[in-house]
Computed example of a mutant assay.
Amino acid sequence: MGVGLVVTDANHVDSMMVEDYSLDCAWGKDENDFELTVDKLIPQGAFVYLEESECGGIVDALRDQLERGDSTLTYSGRTWHGMLENKILAPDSGQDYLTVSGNASTILGALLSRVSLTPLFKAVVPPSGDVSIKSYQFERYVDAYTGVCAMAKANGLKLKVAYRSGHVETWLETAGDYGNDIDSDLLDFDASRTWRKPNHMIGLGKGELRNRIVSHWYADAKGNVTQT
């Protein structure tokens, strides 16, 4: 990959920058984990992350595969979202539900503290400004990731996460409309892009061997198909 991956030690102090690696980082309603293949030894509990990005998390496991003398190290763990997902939002003692209202940054900060993710996780006010949460009632004993995302959706917002300067910064911002972009919080999608497609097709018709009818078709850069 072209973007350097930062790896910390077990105490979460940056220890190295890796350029040669393979990282599969996922978050959403179905999975909040990552898989990293790299030719480096990384301690359990270390952080791996792309600076200023949602992509990153904590190393929970290692798979070492040895084939014909070559060792492949594959690490896996929870993304920042997965760390949220592992925490439970419970109602206060004697209360039926946990309810919140007010400034989003204040609420997020209180929720992160409630599930003991501070000071690593920090609620911040986005450049676009703070937003408000109308009175919201969480489901009983919901995981923090699902609960925060549901609260955000109910208020037309979306959860954003980025690792910056030793902290996992979290904030809520207005969920964009479809427009020319796809907002991953508004729909499910699976997108792929292929840059180098076949542009020459050979058609074989009647006949045998040298007597067989052959036609050639070509696509230009604009997708126009001709026999030139």
Rank of each mutant, 00 (worst) to 15 (best):
1 M>A: 13
1 M>H: 13
1 M>R: 08
2 G>S: 15
4 G>T: 10
4 G>C: 04
5 L>V: 03
6 V>W: 04
6 V>P: 01
8 T>V: 03
11 N>W: 06
11 N>T: 12
12 H>A: 13
15 S>I: 11
19 E>A: 08
19 E>D: 09
20 D>R: 14
21 Y>V: 04
26 A>C: 08
30 D>R: 02
31 E>M: 01
31 E>K: 03
32 N>Y: 00
32 N>P: 03
33 D>Y: 03
34 F>M: 00
34 F>N: 01
36 L>H: 04
38 V>F: 04
45 G>R: 06
48 V>W: 04
49 Y>I: 02
58 I>S: 03
59 V>K: 03
60 D>T: 07
61 A>C: 06
64 D>V: 15
64 D>C: 14
68 R>H: 13
70 D>N: 13
70 D>Y: 12
73 L>M: 10
73 L>I: 06
77 G>L: 04
79 T>L: 03
80 W>A: 00
81 H>L: 01
83 M>R: 03
85 E>R: 00
87 K>M: 09
89 L>H: 02
91 P>I: 09
92 D>P: 07
93 S>P: 09
102 G>T: 00
104 A>W: 04
106 T>C: 04
106 T>P: 06
108 L>I: 03
109 G>M: 08
110 A>K: 11
110 A>Q: 13
112 L>W: 05
114 R>M: 10
115 V>G: 00
117 L>Q: 00
126 P>Q: 06
127 P>I: 05
137 Q>G: 07
140 R>H: 07
140 R>C: 06
144 A>L: 00
149 C>E: 00
153 K>A: 07
154 A>E: 10
154 A>T: 07
156 G>K: 00
157 L>Q: 03
157 L>N: 04
159 L>A: 04
159 L>M: 10
161 V>Y: 02
161 V>C: 05
161 V>H: 00
162 A>G: 07
163 Y>K: 04
163 Y>C: 01
165 S>N: 14
167 H>I: 02
174 T>W: 08
174 T>V: 15
174 T>H: 09
176 G>L: 07
179 G>M: 11
180 N>C: 12
180 N>D: 15
182 I>E: 14
184 S>P: 10
184 S>K: 09
186 L>I: 07
194 T>L: 14
197 K>Y: 12
198 P>T: 09
200 H>M: 11
200 H>N: 12
201 M>G: 11
202 I>W: 10
204 L>I: 14
206 K>F: 14
211 N>C: 11
214 V>D: 09
214 V>A: 10
218 Y>G: 06
226 T>K: 14
228 T>N: 15
